[in-house]
Design a binder for these strands. Structure first.
Lengths: 365, 365
DNA sequence: GTGAAAGCGCTAACAA
DNA sequence: TTGTTAGCGCTTTCAC
């Protein structure tokens, strides 16, 4: 009944060689004669040999050093979640000999990113997880990783030219579409909609423009009535003209909704809207940051789209672990669902857990 | 730097006993003198010994037989998803010596449930995962499991008196609230809302009434205007009066929304609404069944709440595995988030994956 | 009660 | 180029 498990030993016997030889072909560490190789591979294939990964990690008593490169978690609650996910992952994988070192940089300082990247390399990691939020600065960094043949995974921000083994994050264009959809539900007549970019350098943050594009496309395709879309951005917290421009916007009688393109800006926008008076203006932003949850509960924010920073980081590490330890080739792109948070379903998200498994490459359709 | 890992051997040495003795106290298999026990436990505690679970599963070459009891997957796409999750789980855990046998019963036949339950017992399982959709019939079944000291977990339907080690599913009351919230977005004025129960025996399905309650509570608390809530149920597919009653309902000029309480009924209701003419009547139902996705895409259904049947089943098995193999006490209640599916975010859900980890008890807040 | 020893499937160092 | 062997940390059996 119980189908027998085939061990290396069995393969060796069947092929008429020693287990050492089988091991060598399995890991192609050379030193195998043509003849032996042929025989072993044949037997391997015939029996559909699958290594026991449990035994593998026990046997090779290796330690893996992973390094993550991300914005300083103390600077921003979004990245604090990310960091939490990293710690979680370390905890989960420590049994497999995985240790993680985190290198942080300043969200506003591209220089500090480059310096942190150097630090990463000095640590001689076996794998790297990186949040490449500065496009231009990231490219040469990728190159150094690549040249040293260190596998690296991206999360949060996708850079196609990166050569990374995987990207973990969301589809930003569709994220914008979802935001627009939520803003349009039940609305009619002529409407002004606004996209707010708060404290982001749009030159370097192509990704936010992706969201904007999705937003605009949806409104243009589906909005039931004449619509105008205004884009407003605050370049820094000391950008005083922003307040004025926002005030002007809020005065428009047909303003129907505001979409804030980042988790950081969401609460900022909410506080403006609150003091101005909500007047039925729908507000959609990102993530379950504490402030955002409060504004959602009090009705200032209508919807949040959950980017799951914690889970992204966790998955990022897990991806590297799968690659390094379990030799599973990761999906090149791992897109998270665009989860919609409302006042009523929000509590059900706050107890959510991360669950993982070593051979976690199972994909569902 | 790298903090040393403490093995049984180390504990034994520190306590001045053999590893055999340490093992005995770890698993309290008796045969340990007062004295030794005291010493070992002291050392254990002092060093915060944590067993290497990897080595554990390798060492004890045990096989675990799990059995699941659920409605016939061929009968209903919802349960087909569930079954997929089971297969997935088997695949994931097979490395740890886990095998799973599935026993199915007829959704409409309580008798067949009881018979299937008997079959389950005959298989002498080490653990059981059960979808106890028939309340009254389930109670005695739980008792037989309990009497034989077989650990069992519930999913899909919560029965508080079950004595199960865990329940995996959703909070139905809040599910109803979320549905109501979605139906109310952007609506105003006097409105009739309807809750549809399609093909469910309400006597035995207290859980659907939970959803209805949540729905009603929300509307009464928050709806902006006078509201009437009508509850309609079809007891079987041959309940011809249902069609008439539904037609009457659909004629109401102020009908603003319909909430279908189960995944199965969702497409049925959608087809009715489609042929009647949508007329701005909002429709909220459950799950990403193929038909539902179609109706969502074509605009007949406005929102789906995702119950994640596949993930529920997967988690259920994982819960048992954690309990049996990793000796981790599971959370007694594992509530999934109430995920809102819209036309725009739906595609991002269709590539979703299940990720798991052996020590998967990590909880995030 | 206790300890010694074999073995789980695999890796890696070493001898041949 | 090959085969042998000693572990990895834990379980389990079997003598003492």
């Amino acid at each position: 009944m119980a189908k027998k498990i085939i061990r290396i030993k069995d393969i060796a016997k069947a092929a008429g060689v020693s287990i050492g030889t089988v091991d060598r072909v399995l890991h192609n560490r050379g030193k195998v004669s043509e003849d032996a190789l042929k025989k072993v591979t044949a037997v391997l294939k015939k029996n559909e040999y699958k290594p026991n990964l449990i035994a593998r990690t026990l046997g090779s008593n290796k330690a893996y050093r992973l390094v993550t490169l991300l914005p300083n978690p103390e600077q921003d609650p979004y990245w604090a979640f990310t960091h939490k996910g990293i710690l979680q992952a370390e905890n989960e994988w420590s049994h497999y000999g995985v240790s993680i070192v985190t290198c942080v940089f300043d969200l506003q300082e591209k220089k500090s990113f480059e310096e942190a990247a150097k630090k990463v390399l000095k640590l001689k990691p076996d794998g790297i997880l990186i949040a490449p939020i500065f496009y231009k600065e990231a490219l040469p960094v990728f190159k150094t990783f690549f040249d040293k043949a260190i596998p690296y995974a991206l999360f949060n921000t996708h850079i196609k030219e990166s050569n990374a083994i995987s990207f973990i994050g969301q589809d930003l264009y569709h994220s914008g579409r979802v935001a627009a959809e939520l803003i349009c539900i039940g609305q009619k007549g002529p409407g002004t909609f606004s996209v707010l970019h708060v404290d982001e350098d749009l030159n370097d943050s192509i990704h936010l423009l992706e969201k904007e594009k999705g937003f605009k496309d949806y409104v243009n395709e589906f909005y039931d009535g004449h619509s105008v879309i205004e884009s407003l951005n605050r370049t820094s917290s000391t950008d005083f003209s922003f307040k004025k421009r926002l005030a002007t916007l809020l005065k428009k009688p047909d303003l129907k909704g505001i979409f804030v393109s980042s988790s950081r800006g969401t609460a900022t926008a909410a506080s403006f809207l609150k003091s101005h008076g909500k007047n039925g203006i729908r507000l959609v932003g990102y993530d379950l940051l504490e402030k955002n949850v409060e504004y959602l509960n009090s009705g200032v924010i209508d919807f949040l789209i959950h980017q799951k920073p914690q889970q992204q980081a966790f998955e990022g590490i897990s991806c590297l672990v799968n690659h390094l330890i379990f030799k599973k080739s990761p999906q090149p792109i791992n897109l998270f669902p665009l989860e919609v948070i409302t006042r009523q379903n929000m509590p059900s998200y706050q107890v959510e857990s991360i669950n993982y498994h070593p051979q976690g490459t199972s994909i569902l359709n």
